[in-house]
């Protein structure tokens, strides 16, 4: 599995709701972001100054990349998840959502992104958190993406103990591990300060899995149930477009974007 190579090398500007007593530019965003969340309960990432890896430029006449992700071959048959605990609530079995393929063959839960893009539109400055819900002993959504500086709201709709345990997908190193002990519990946490692919597990229900792509650039999309994706406001140029699926892995295609035009880039993934 390949991860994003670039890492932000400092220069994240953080402003705190609690007051100006913490340094404005800091080289330890992860530490301070977490500290600030604890201290003030709110964290405003008002501006991201992205050094080295990504530069924000005005994009006035960008192009659009759209396409559909399909499988090159029949959808692999994957046995349902056999529920081995809390069957009274979770049920005896759960359909395995590794491959979700629509009626026209589009694959859901594929993350499509431009690799190694170095300049373009600004990252979303909206601090609204992404959401990960523990419901019916599964995570929802299974795959989603966020940008550096965003937060995540983790919640449970289940009357059983869950724990939301994000790990670096490459090393399995724990990012943190939060107990969701009862129905209705919700908490908002910062995402890691550096972009990475995050694998989320629930240790209490070992079949539960979710994936969060954290980017330091805004050109990405997660396919819906029709397998389609759209990436807008792309500066003209030739790029490597990558599609990632949790089981099929990655597929890269080259795509050339012209000013103000829409280019179609359908992708076929080799099922595994």
């Amino acid at each position: 599995m390949r991860l994003i190579g670039n890492r932000i090398k400092g220069g994240i500007v953080i402003e705190f709701a609690a007051g100006p007593y913490l340094p404005k530019a800091c080289r330890k965003p992860r530490l301070l972001a977490r500290t600030a969340a604890v201290v003030s309960g709110t964290l405003l990432l008002s501006q991201l100054a992205l050094a080295d890896s990504y530069t924000v430029i005005p994009v006035t006449n960008g192009g659009t990349i759209q396409g559909t992700v399909k499988l090159a071959g029949p959808t692999p048959t994957i046995a349902p998840i056999v529920v081995t605990k809390n069957q009274d609530y979770c049920g005896e079995s759960i359909p395995n959502p590794v491959y979700v393929v629509g009626k026209d063959g589009g694959v859901q839960n594929v993350e499509v992104y431009l690799k190694d893009i170095t300049k373009g539109k600004a990252l979303p400055t909206d601090p609204v958190a992404i959401s990960l819900v523990n419901t019916h002993c599964m995570f929802k959504p299974r795959v989603q993406a966020a940008t550096v500086g965003q937060q995540i709201t983790i919640s449970s709709e289940d009357p059983v103990l869950h724990n939301t345990h994000p790990q670096n997908a490459e090393t399995n190193a724990t990012i943190y591990n939060i107990a969701l002990p009862y129905k209705g519990f919700s908490v908002t946490k910062p995402l890691p300060a550096t972009p990475e692919l995050i694998k989320v597990k629930c240790d209490a229900h070992e079949w539960m899995r979710a994936w969060i792509w954290e980017f330091d650039q805004p050109y990405f999309a997660t396919t819906g149930d029709d397998g389609k994706f759209t990436i807008k406001d792309v500066p003209p140029g030739t790029y490597t477009l990558v599609a990632w699926q949790e089981a099929a892995g990655e597929k890269s295609v080259s795509v050339t974007v012209a000013a103000g035009k829409t280019v179609t880039a359908d992708i076929q993934l080799q099922p595994k």
């Binding site: 724990n163 345990h165 943190y176 939060i178």
Partner: peptide
Amino acid sequence: GGLNGTPMPSFADSI
């Protein structure tokens, strides 16, 4: 604090 690297989670936000 939980026990990093293990299934034992943190209850800091709930207890």
